[in-house]
Design a protein around this nucleic acid. Structure first.
Lengths: 219, 219
DNA sequence: GAATCATTCAAGAGAATAATTGAATGTTTT
DNA sequence: AAAACATTCAATTATTCTCTTGAATGATTC
């Protein structure tokens, strides 16, 4: 009907199309962890460098990513604006409406555990009380780019060998990359079998940071 | 990386692609007003019936719409699930990140007015006090499908002639289809020039209904 | 049951998108 | 300045979307 409304819908549709490819969503998930070079992102996603570059440029053109030159590398980071809110809204819709997603979530993520997830607000408060140990199970590189204050980094693969780094008498809260990242689910399951009192943080590091809560990062 | 995550991203991408066409977004906006036949929706959007039907089926396949047979018509309505939340998140992102959208919004919607918009919560309370007149400026057909409790329906085109239906001593709150619908903006501007105390409701009817607030509809 | 109506289906042309390849650009290092 | 490196660009092909057209389906009305 009206012209300006049409134009806005056209722009919104372009934004939506930008999210309309699994590779770009996966790239966004990695960008949400922190800054990364094209080469790194290509390796993380298994894409060719040229292909990754094109998808990243697509994301950048529409504000989902920003870049910075660092020597001969180009570092991509998440754009600003409420990007994670959009993704979260999509996830909620998918879990509600798309049977396939519900099944995968039910089969892989054992939502029972998720029911015991601790909220950002609760963890934030308990951090101030000092009554909890925070465990970051992401790979070391992602931890280095930024993590929750005081978190202990034990990548999932090293968990068995480094149990000594976890106090047995305090409750542990594990987190990882965010929704659909299984690392923290597996860590919680493994530690529970060993008798630890352990819960999962809802979502993960990017959402914590996006909520404006304090983080520690390399300067 | 992991298989289930890939599958979920693939599904999310499909959802996003479904929103990735201006015609479908426009159809969704109309569906948010209430149930409509294919023919009506085609007329409202200016699409051919076959084309509208295909887009509508696309929306339905992905849960954005549902259907019901009524005689020889097929009535489409908005699917359930947090669809409007996703659209709202998209709008916020676009207004934040997409220069074109910011410009159009600034030029057409005079966000100054929007600053004086009344929230759903406030209107809800004032409705209970009875201290406000609610004005629905949508066309009669959309009003008939559902509207705010006690609202007066004066389509924008008839506003001049039907001023008598508006009490001059009470504050008026106007609303229309939702974001990017200019009807209520224009009504507010027109009534202000005539000396009425009048504000806009934030968003519009679909958002009010989605928030679980009471509505009146034909039975 | 024949005619009518609203919607859907099926096929095809045209446009847009995605992945691959190899060359080009802009940095750093030698 | 030349070589090495990370990224981007450009061209190509394959695939997927979009819209139109005309026929098919399902339901009502005459």
């Amino acid at each position: 009907m009206s012209n300006p409304k049409r134009q806005i819908f056209e722009q919104l549709a372009e934004l939506a199309r930008t999210l309309g490819h699994a590779h770009r969503l996966e790239l966004l998930e990695h960008l949400a962890q922190g800054e990364r070079s094209v080469e790194t992102l290509a390796a993380l996603t298994g894409l060719s460098v040229a292909n990754a570059s094109q998808h990243l440029q697509h994301l950048r053109r529409h504000g989902f990513a920003q870049t910075r030159r660092d020597g001969k590398r180009v570092m991509y980071r998440l754009g600003d604006g409420p990007i994670l809110d959009v993704l979260a809204a999509f996830r909620r819709l998918a879990e509600h409406n798309v049977a396939e997603v519900r099944e995968i979530v039910a089969a892989c993520f054992t939502r029972l555990d998720s029911l015991e997830a601790i909220s950002r607000e609760e963890l934030s408060q308990r951090l101030q009380e000092g009554s909890v140990t925070v465990l970051d199970v992401r790979p070391q590189g992602e931890f280095a780019l930024g993590h929750l204050p005081g978190a202990v980094n034990i990548p999932l693969a090293d968990l068995q060998q480094r149990l000594a780094d976890l106090p047995a008498d305090q409750e542990v809260v594990a987190y990882c990359r965010g929704p659909y990242c299984v690392l923290s689910f597996e860590a919680v399951a493994a530690l529970r079998r060993l008798g630890y009192r352990v819960r999962r943080l809802e979502d993960g590091y990017p959402e914590w940071k996006a909520a404006g809560l304090p983080v520690e990062a390399i300067s």
